[in-house]
Design a binder for these strands. Structure first.
Lengths: 335, 335
DNA sequence: TTGAAAGCGGTACCAT
DNA sequence: ATGGTACCGCTTTCAA
């Protein structure tokens, strides 16, 4: 492995000049610059990242912490983050911090403290107090995707609005018996899910339907939505005419269950989700579209801005979910 | 930020001794050791990773290259890799190398050459010749998950066997008109898919059914399986009595399509997949189970072995897929 | 068992 | 515009 000293020697210049030519900082004459570049190329010179980091204090690496990578939203955000980073030559270190695991504890206690990154993107982390403290201690810029504003920059959609809009869509179609499906299982009552439930409740209340408000809990996944829907839809006496799902996965699970039970969608049951999941089209799912890739990309831009400008005040980027009407929703059939 | 010099000063020893006490290398008396440890703790000392890397030549970081992170198998493998790494305090740098993208080219040309890792795990990469060359040039141990043995260690299932077993299962149930569904779309005819197709063909041939052999192409995804199945099953004249899907996602797509078309599974159509996907249970899918998490974990073990023992010869770990019979397959109804 | 000092491979300041 | 050199923070010989 040839180092910058070799390059310098071959080009007949000092290490300092070679460094300038290579990094583009400082003044170097055209002639020497190209001699250095040629030398570097012919030697296959690649700077040692650890040496660069040690000398500059910058890692050219971004840390990404998320609780799941096997859920659609998270995987999409991750790809949305990766791409702009690749374009800029920045590395991505992934920390998979599943709630309640020992690994998560280690991430907060050991890994993050190492600061192997210039900045951090936290996706749907929903940190506990202790974890939040750790994050603040790091002393590196942090951008969150999904999640409340806790003194750092945030990229998110307006969950309240999305759920409200979904509910209003159903109400406008004449539905009154509308169930909110999903979330609320286990100890980790996710805040996103809570916010969406709140939006649903608000829309119901505004339409004078507060008394009909119902929340049916489920795991936030396709099988979770499926299982909950089998129970809910199995008994025709408690079956609502419409469902607002906490996200598309739950909505899709519900549609699959509905079909299995012979309850036609949207004939006997309207379903609306939030996401615009990869499978939404295939299930003709009406949904509030959010674009997780764009959120990931936006988080990168924000983070880079913070890196350029250390004292930049935290910004909050709210993206608006857009209603996409497909055919999982229809007007309430008159009795 | 306090460095090892601060720790040494506080403990009243030299940097050298502090380093020995902290890393556990060399001989240090119990007394000094604990003084150093206390000093480090009270200062909240965290070693600079770049300095450590520069001095030792080891990054304590593992690179993971995969073409997708939003597909079940890959996400599972990724989690299977992450966990054992966390336990050992090793970082994970992710490179999302989608076939045919500019990002992928940059990964191979720039990112990997930086060697920001002690070793690499390549998951389902299926590198082209040029890419393979780059990989070899890195000069760091590489373990592949899925994929042919190209001089590096490999963890995989026996795809040929899995597809063969799936096919034999159907044949044993009396099926003769069996279609292999999935793969073969676009330029990237994945080798895994090819191997599975070959296994299917072999089983068919052995049963004297070579003439009935049919491959129907589809994208390797749930919507892909769905779309292809809608076409295939829509016309009752060409509809087979059973399907071997290239993987569970395609199988599930086919089942969803089948239900929509009113073709009962397994009544009129038996379906078998390969994976044991997260949704397999919910669709009662008969499948050949592979355990991607274990594959990921195994890849880590293998990689660490290579790091410990630089000249360890490449090993190939073949895991056997296990047939799980659920109720998407049944005996061929007599005409 | 401990300390002094020489790197590891760059960057960046200070001269020239 | 270029060169000399002192770091960056830690590990690791070599001596004591």
């Amino acid at each position: 492995m040839s180092g910058i000293a070799d390059v310098a020697a071959l080009a007949g210049v000092s290490k300092a000049t070679a460094s300038r030519a290579l990094t583009g900082s400082g003044h170097v004459s055209q002639a020497t610059r190209s001699r250095v570049l040629d030398a570097a190329a012919s030697l296959g010179y690649v700077p040692s990242t650890s040496a660069v980091s040690l000398a500059t204090g910058r890692t050219r690496n971004v840390g990404v912490v998320m609780p799941y990578v096997n859920r659609w939203f998270f995987a999409e955000v991750l790809e949305g983050i990766q791409q702009p980073l690749l374009e800029r030559g920045l590395d991505l270190t992934l920390y998979d911090a599943k709630p309640g695991t020992e690994g998560r504890a280690r991430i907060f206690d050991d890994f993050l403290a190492r600061k192997r990154f210039d900045g951090l993107i936290a996706v749907g982390l929903e940190p506990e107090d202790r974890e939040l403290q750790r994050l603040m201690q790091i002393g590196r810029p942090i951008v969150s995707v999904v999640g409340a504003d806790e003194g750092s920059s945030v990229v998110s959609i307006d969950d309240d609005y999305a759920a409200r809009r979904a509910t209003e869509h159903l109400i406008a179609l004449g539905h009154t018996d509308i169930v909110f499906l999903g979330g609320g299982v286990g100890e980790h009552w996710a805040q996103v899910d809570r916010r969406r439930l709140t939006g649903y409740e608000a829309a119901m209340a505004e339409a004078g339907l507060a008394s009909t408000t119902r929340h049916v809990r489920s795991e936030v996944s396709i099988p979770g939505g499926y299982d909950a829907a089998v129970d809910l839809l199995g008994d025709s006496r408690t079956r609502p005419s419409a469902l607002v799902a906490v996200c598309d996965e739950v909505a899709i699970g519900a549609i699959i269950a509905s079909r299995r039970l012979g309850v036609p969608v949207p004939g006997a049951l309207s379903v609306v989700g939030i996401d615009d999941h990869e499978y939404a089209e295939m299930f003709s799912l009406t949904t509030l579209q959010q674009l997780p890739r764009q959120q990931g990309a936006a988080a990168v831009e924000l983070l880079l801005a913070h890196l350029d400008e250390p004292h930049r005040p935290p910004t909050s980027v709210q993206m608006q979910a857009r209603l996409i009407v497909r055919s999982s929703t229809s007007a309430l059939a008159q009795a």
